[in-house]
Design a protein around this nucleic acid. Structure first.
Lengths: 214, 214
DNA sequence: TAGATTGTTAATCGATTAACAATC
DNA sequence: TAGATTGTTAATCGATTAACAATC
């Protein structure tokens, strides 16, 4: 899956949403859909749908539309759904535990491989069938297990040092829940989920209710 | 806080990040900062910083820059930080529990007011000093408590019906963690955190590593 | 006053929407 | 074949960056 053309970030961030709608359509046994019908459902323009999809290939057929099953499969491939990426969770607090137990990740083929903490009260306890390991043992663990992603669920002040160490141990991608921007070398992939930022935007919308905000 | 000018969504979504950096500066006792110095730290252009801030007012001073404490306060006001918004959590599963215990929300003045579930095994248990209430009792609860926000942590197939009911009970804003797009009347505020979407974007970046993606 | 840095206008860049020829 | 709908080019819109006069 080598992409020649440069794909805009805006397009990439819409792909999971297409995948979601196509999955829903498949479940209710819809076999084909036109960009204009999908546009009504998703509340984006048909033009945008066709532009987005055509970044990756001509998945439709004039006069027919798109085959739901086929298109969904194509987008799944583009996104790496069922690529069986393996992840570890760093931090076994409330959030780390929640992610370890969150079944929707396994549904799209991401594999929970281990969870680590430095708190001795947590080390040794079992979360989703895995014993919490001490963070100091992660070097050994990573030497014997090919891990793609580290999910960062520790306080902001520890995130920098811990992630820098994980980079030296070979981790190439981070899903970061710590409320800080990781500054790692730029061949390292970082995807942020800044919960507080999101909640603040909600606060903004509440406060300035009269003005509609996307 | 009535805004006359229309503020672009892109600007609004950057505000929490400004707030975060200004808070960090304040902690290390920096009293003033220029847009160009902040630009280096945040890795965005100085031009963008000045444009963004000037949507809300002239917070700086020529030849001096911005007073960190003052600017942070202004942004806090714009975002509604410490407006003491009250929230309930719908769904006391792993994610709901994690949010109930997440202290960073309280830090910015959001108040945890109650948590609800339909699972009788969870109802009555205590999470962050609150007993989980049965979802069927939420009408009574909302009649006696002024609640601003409902955090939605239930499966996608239940999210629509539950949120529609909450709208009739007067809830005006939703922080939605269910992997579905809530279609509510458009005076209702919805802020989505689509975890699976975010993880899929990470998967995309991993799969297409050679091409850098924002 | 001179230097620094903002606030703001103008220019550029990128993303969305419109339009329509190609084609199933 | 005629109707439908894509793929794609062109036009528009919005967001970012550059430039500089205003001013502290």
């Amino acid at each position: 899956m080598a992409l020649n053309k440069k794909i805009s970030p805006a397009v990439i961030r819409r792909l999971p949403r297409y995948f979601r709608y196509l999955t829903d359509l498949l479940i209710i046994n819809v076999t084909r859909i036109s960009s204009s019908k999908l546009s009504e459902k998703m509340e984006i323009t048909a033009s945008q749908i066709r532009q987005d999809l055509n970044c990756f290939g001509g998945f439709g057929q004039q006069g027919y539309g798109y085959n739901v099953k086929f298109l969904r499969k194509q987008i799944a491939n583009i996104l790496g759904v069922h690529s069986h990426f393996k992840f570890v969770i760093i931090g076994a607090g409330n959030l780390g535990q929640a992610l370890a137990n969150y079944s929707n990740f396994q549904k799209i083929g991401f594999k929970f491989a281990g969870i680590f903490d430095k708190n001795l009260d947590l080390v040794g306890t079992t979360i989703n069938n895995k014993k919490v390991m001490h963070i100091d043992t992660i070097g050994d663990f990573l030497a014997y297990n090919k891990i793609d992603i580290a999910m960062i669920c520790i306080p902001a002040n520890q995130a920098t040092i811990v992630t820098e160490n994980l980079v030296t141990l070979g981790i190439k991608a981070f899903w970061n829940f710590s409320p800080t921007d990781l500054k790692l070398s730029n061949n390292i992939i970082v995807e942020n989920v800044h919960l507080v930022d999101s909640l603040m935007v909600l606060g903004y919308k509440l406060l300035h209710k009269s003005i509609p905000v996307l």
